[in-house]
Amino acid sequence: MEHLIRVTAEVPLENEEEVRALITRCALGALEREQVDFAAFVDVTIVDDENIRALNAEYREKDAVTDVLSFPMYEFLNGAPQEDLEPDPESDRVMLGDMILNYERARQQAAEFGHSAARECGFLTVHSVLHLLGFDHERDETDRALMRGEEEAILAALGLTRESV
């Protein structure tokens, strides 16, 4: 399947090409694991604390810095579409939604958790793509366990386990 992951950095990054490649690889890995059998499109924007705080306040009514935000275009439930999906006429792909990643926060959390920025950035990317596909760790304990299991399986397949980086 010809998926498109568009990554735009609104903040300067020392290793921008590396970060963009990592995000793309992780998003594609999540779509493959979840067997997305249609051409999908995900738009990723890398921002800083200030920008993500403003978006979090505006869209979630939480005036706080966060690590990643997901804005799905369609209703899914644990990977299954709950409505008809229509490809965008220009790209001929289904727009799954937008992901806003706070790379600054990802680096801080990586240091706190004792693993690499790549592992944390990969985790946040996979986490967000799963949200776009209707997985929700806040729905109930069963869904939380399902989402966590999918995250770990995808990251392991990508070689981004906690132990390896």
Rank of each mutant, 00 (worst) to 15 (best):
M1S: 11
L4P: 00
L4T: 09
I5C: 02
T8Y: 10
A9H: 11
E14V: 13
E14P: 00
N15A: 15
E16G: 02
E17C: 00
E17F: 05
E17V: 03
E17M: 10
E18F: 05
E18G: 07
A21Q: 11
L22R: 02
I23D: 01
L28C: 04
G29V: 10
G29N: 03
A30V: 07
L31Y: 04
E32F: 12
R33S: 13
E34F: 01
E34L: 15
E34Q: 15
V36Q: 09
D37W: 01
D37N: 08
F38S: 08
A39S: 13
A39L: 14
A40C: 06
F41G: 02
F41Q: 08
V42S: 09
D43K: 09
V44M: 11
T45A: 09
D48G: 15
D49N: 14
E50M: 06
N51S: 14
N51G: 10
I52S: 04
A54P: 04
A57D: 11
A57C: 14
E61T: 09
D63Y: 13
V65Y: 01
V65S: 05
T66M: 12
F71Y: 14
F71V: 00
P72V: 13
M73V: 14
L77A: 12
L77T: 06
G79T: 05
A80L: 14
Q82I: 10
E83R: 10
L85G: 00
L85N: 07
P87A: 04
P87F: 02
P89R: 02
D92N: 15
V94Y: 09
M95N: 10
M95S: 08
L96T: 12
G97L: 04
G97I: 10
D98W: 11
D98E: 11
L101V: 14
N102L: 07
N102P: 02
N102A: 07
N102M: 11
Y103I: 05
R105H: 11
A106R: 08
A106M: 12
Q108R: 15
Q109T: 14
A110L: 03
A110G: 12
A110N: 12
A111D: 13
E112R: 15
E112Y: 12
E112I: 13
F113G: 04
G114H: 07
H115I: 00
A117P: 05
A117H: 11
A117T: 09
A117N: 01
R119G: 07
C121P: 00
C121Q: 07
G122H: 11
F123Y: 05
T125Q: 01
T125S: 06
H127G: 03
S128N: 05
S128A: 13
H131L: 00
H131D: 05
L132T: 03
L132H: 03
D136H: 05
D136A: 07
E138P: 01
E138N: 12
D140H: 05
D140S: 03
E141G: 02
T142C: 00
T142H: 06
T142P: 00
D143K: 02
D143T: 02
R144L: 10
A145T: 10
L146V: 08
M147E: 07
R148T: 00
E150G: 01
E150A: 08
E150P: 00
E150D: 04
E151D: 01
A153I: 02
A156M: 10
A157Y: 11
A157Q: 13
A157I: 01
L158N: 04
L158I: 06
L160C: 03
T161D: 05
R162S: 04
R162G: 13
R162C: 01
E163H: 11
E163T: 08
S164M: 05
V165L: 15
V165Y: 13
